[in-house]
Design a protein around this nucleic acid. Structure first.
Lengths: 234, 234
DNA sequence: ACCTGAACACCGTTCAAGT
DNA sequence: ACCTGAACACCGTTCAAGT
């Protein structure tokens, strides 16, 4: 409770930088990662900056716009290089992997990206590339659109829903949460739920995130490739 | 404001049934579907029953438990018939289709199911069947677990993230929301985003939900089948 | 341009008390 | 067993006012 005294003495308490649209968004992302998305509130962020809640409204229209901006900021982390002229559906792999990397840096806000992929600038560049690849693979407009959505949303789901991700829960409670869930599965009657009991650990803990992400992307690519192969052969 | 007068005269205002755990959950699901998930609050539901907010705490531990119960209730809608002894990965199709049907009945609460698939009774029966099918197809424990998660979460994503679903938005604002999003895409510079502009409609409006859901399930099945085909052939 | 103060209409939840 | 009343610690947001 001495933080208020530091407000005019250089370093602003929790934030480390002056109040601005950028710093507000950054602070919100950090809070979401460390304490879960529920901890993000206008009043809380304002407190971290030793400032009145209403001060934030100068930099951000309202809370919804802040949440959207957080999603956009994550998408800005994605490197979107030029799309190779050749390479077929394989060209989706680095594209999706890049998205995974960005999402993985802000697990507490991954969900926010879903609503923004088609509407933030970086997301639109990503979507355009995906649609290009799918159209060149022979999918018509509707199927390209559906597959592009599926690709981007699968990735969000992959990261947000990874075994043991628990993005809604504060960092310190995550491990306990995982163990509790695993115990719930392991304690099921093995005659009725043999596989669920057997997979209790595999379903709740992610040994190797990289391998998990890679095989999630692989699943999508395998599916899209198989569907492409069924398109009016010849 | 005359509704309070009806509280002892038979039919309880908005709900149509007496206060109970079941009726509270049902009312919450209805509110979420009609006015969006944000409209679900302890106080609001209490009001609909002409009852004090604290009355709900007798029937429900707290809001989180209510949300979990809503997810469980949706999963209870899924019919889980016996798993055929034969049929390979194709047996996943009716299983996933059944889940889609249940989710589709409560679009405002679809998201809640994601956290409950592995922990509600109906969800566990579903998951056990999926794991059985995948194990019989030759996937090892870890890959079965990952694919089962992917299958169930893909379906949730398919419904919650369908073009034009907008489950966060009140029923009456949905159409306007869709048109706004479509306009945003259609107005992009066509030289930089040719496909995005071309797909503006396909990306924001769902012409044929049944076909959309079917091809989403098809994508997963095609992927899983392709991956199964790569497993130590012979 | 940027921030504050006071106020409004909401939340979830606890606890003691009623019937 | 089931519900109420009062209270606490939170929310987002508006509006007029300050510098």
């Amino acid at each position: 409770m001495i933080s208020r005294a530091t407000s005019r003495t250089g370093a602003q308490s929790g934030s480390g930088s002056a109040l601005s649209r950028e710093s507000v968004i950054d602070r919100a992302l950090t809070v979401a990662d460390q304490e879960g998305p529920a901890a993000v509130s206008i009043r809380r962020i304002a407190q971290d900056f030793d400032v009145t809640p209403m001060a934030l409204y100068w930099h951000v229209k309202n809370k919804d716009e802040l949440l959207a901006a957080m999603g956009d900021r994550i998408l800005d982390l994605v490197e979107v290089p030029e799309l190779p002229a050749e390479g077929g559906l394989e060209r989706l792999r680095p594209l999706l992997a890049g998205l995974v990397d960005a999402l993985d840096r802000h697990p507490g806000s991954t969900e926010l990206v879903r609503a923004r992929v088609l509407y933030s600038d970086a997301g639109q560049r990503l979507a355009e590339q995906a649609l290009t690849v799918l159209a060149e693979a022979g999918f018509d407009r509707q199927r390209s659109a559906d597959l592009a959505r599926a690709a981007l949303q699968s990735v969000v789901m992959l990261v947000a829903g990874a075994p043991g991700a628990e993005p809604d829960v504060p960092l310190e409670d995550r491990q306990a949460m995982r163990e509790q869930k695993r115990a719930a599965l392991a304690a099921l009657p093995p005659d009725r739920f043999p596989h669920l009991v057997d997979c209790a650990r595999a379903l709740t803990e992610c040994e190797d995130p990289d391998a998990y992400y890679a095989s999630g992307i692989e699943l999508f690519l395998a599916g899209a490739t198989a569907l492409a192969g069924r398109l009016t052969p010849g």
